[in-house]
Write a protein that binds this DNA or RNA. Structure first.
Lengths: 211, 211, 211, 211
DNA sequence: AATGAATGAGTGTTCATTCAT
DNA sequence: TATGAATGAACACTCATTCAT
């Protein structure tokens, strides 16, 4: 699955429908840069990871994306709009990635391993985890973002349900969220077995395999 | 239990190191109104709930606490310091309150009900939940706050352990955090039974009662 | 009388000097929609009325005229140029309209009534009055606009002179301007008789009828 | 009469009640500068004269008043507030000055001469005239400013009435406004006699002297 | 001990204008 | 001919922080 930048899933109006067609990279500053919008969104996510919702500014995003300040405000009607679209873009990517994780799952054991990896996942996973929590917190205040968190939760549970049934999926989902946060915050690394035990138990000892 | 405002548990330096020199103790009741500090801390927490870490400012806090602007900068060396002390104050209150919850627990059933209440807790609980998540997120970036989250987690688990043993306590703790977030974000209220089932299962079917 | 948009009476240079070269005259009716220019000028005047010289922007004008932003900057070399041409267009229309007012004047009485109407004229007249004052004020700073105000004053006085002689025309003209402003700013409406008395007196008791 | 800066006659709230007591002018940048507020107001009026309502900015005012930018935004809640208070300050000064003009008037002749001076008044009077028109125009759009224009008109007429009676005062007032504008805009100077004649006539040939 | 005045850095945002197409 | 994308300069305004008192 190949996520594309969301088409205004939430908030704000794109000011201009984004002219396409490639362009000469060379001469003077890149004009006609069709990926610019996505690069800005990715930069915004980077800033969100680094500095949090409290620290995002047009200027930081522009610097990170290596575009002029005016370019950010040109493509996004407001900072809130930028943030909302960045979160939407994140959810879209994240959902696809999440589904991919389970492609190879063939047994209960596989499933558990995948989930333990998800929770324990190294620094590479830190980014997504932080963004997830930022989104949740932001959604608590901005109802417009609620759409995103709901869609996300729904999708995650749907994927898990394929293996566990709906009730366990809900439990698992909540547990995973808590575990991830604890792993992120723990000073000494949580042993894999502890994580595995928690997951095993949430799966339930009696769950018939449905993968 | 009567929590008192922490004495600079984390971060920041008081601007003026409190000259203990002159000033008769009796004269003007207490030297400079010790409640003011806590009132400011509570105001800071209020602002954090309302506007998040992104929205806290000296001015908003001063207004909320109904003290002059200078009073906030006088008592707290920096905004980061204020925030850190506010979180510390929150954890202290929260820990005490959390322990109180279990005072009356006499049976497994009691325990489950208390935890379901904790998760489903009405709007009154929203404040603490939001602050908890804000703290977690802040701690992800500011190692100085890690002390607080650890202390908090440790205390919570200790309390739960009294009833469940240490492994289940860890699982429960993570699950509760995830459940609380999901309840806060859910559009249609999560049924109590669903929450209860998840908790029951995390407690484990075989757990011997240790309350 | 049919005022047409002035051809750059003042200021600014058209960006592209209108290549008269190729292009058969008949083919696409008129080359590039001549009404668009006037529509933009009218939109600019609308914006001037609403937001004043302080508030005019290319974007507002484009939106009001319902043309793309580029169209405004294409037809007018700069914002100052647009403003100048809009004022010119206004003066042209206004002069014609002013003359028309006196078409039916046959007696001193008629004249007085027409002038009282001019001063007291309802909301429909508010637009022209505001624009007039805006122009005067703008002309105080931009000598290029002085041409317009002079032409306007000259024309107005010429028209009035036909009935009153030149001296009374000057007095009347000044008085009318003051009266109009006062009427616009008054909270409770100025009674017609007061206005009429002022005009009557400026006309002079002894003025022989020259209409 | 000694006009003092108005105490929030219109709009905005003063952020701080202005600490008084003089201060050492010397060492490092002037803090404690009690006249600063007035200096800013005067600077704002200067900018209004030079650049009009369209051109006023915090930065220009700050530069003109020789205070840091932050000082302007500190003392005035918004640019609109600054403008409103500047206009109020202007009206107060203007009213006083206007009254002073008539202190020496002892005869109808005196009155006429004073008024002719008022209209023809050299470059020194240009400033007040421009500000007057700016205020009128601004008041057309901002009802809050209407209070000022009304007070001003009322006061002017009251002064004139002392010599002319109320009806003639109204006529005169309007006429003066129109004459002043015309003088300002005229390329070749209006002859004094023309102005005098207009005023004489508005006074009315029969007006009994009431000075 | 306490506070209001003050300020410079930085914010989100707007916009005239340029330019490639 | 016409226009949308793009950008840099400027804007109003906010704020943490400093400091004199």
């Amino acid at each position: 699955m190949e996520p594309k930048p969301p088409e205004r899933t939430v908030g704000g109006e794109r000011k201009h429908p984004a002219g396409d067609t490639a362009a000469g990279e060379g001469r003077r500053a890149r004009r006609h840069d069709p990926e610019r919008r996505t690069r800005i969104l990715d930069a915004a996510l980077d800033v969100l990871v680094t500095d949090g919702a409290a620290g995002i500014t047009h200027r930081k995003v522009a610097a990170r994306a290596d575009v002029p300040l005016g370019s950010v405000t040109y493509h996004f009607a407001s900072l809130a709009d930028l943030q909302a679209q960045a979160f939407a873009w994140y959810v879209e990517q994240q959902t696809a990635q999440f589904e991919d994780l389970f492609d190879e799952v063939r047994s209960r054991q596989d499933l558990v391993e995948v989930l333990v990896d998800l929770v324990q996942g190294g620094p590479s996973r830190r980014r997504s985890a932080v963004l997830g929590f930022e989104l949740h917190l932001a959604a608590l205040r901005d109802p417009a973002l609620r759409t995103l968190t709901q869609q996300w939760t729904r999708d995650s549970r749907a994927v898990l349900s394929r293996f566990t049934g709906p009730e366990a999926a809900g439990r698992l989902d909540a547990l995973l969220e808590g575990l991830i946060m604890h792993v992120l915050l723990a000073i000494e690394p949580e042993p894999r077995e502890v994580t595995r035990a928690a997951i095993e138990q949430a799966l339930g000892p009696l769950t018939t395999w449905r993968g």
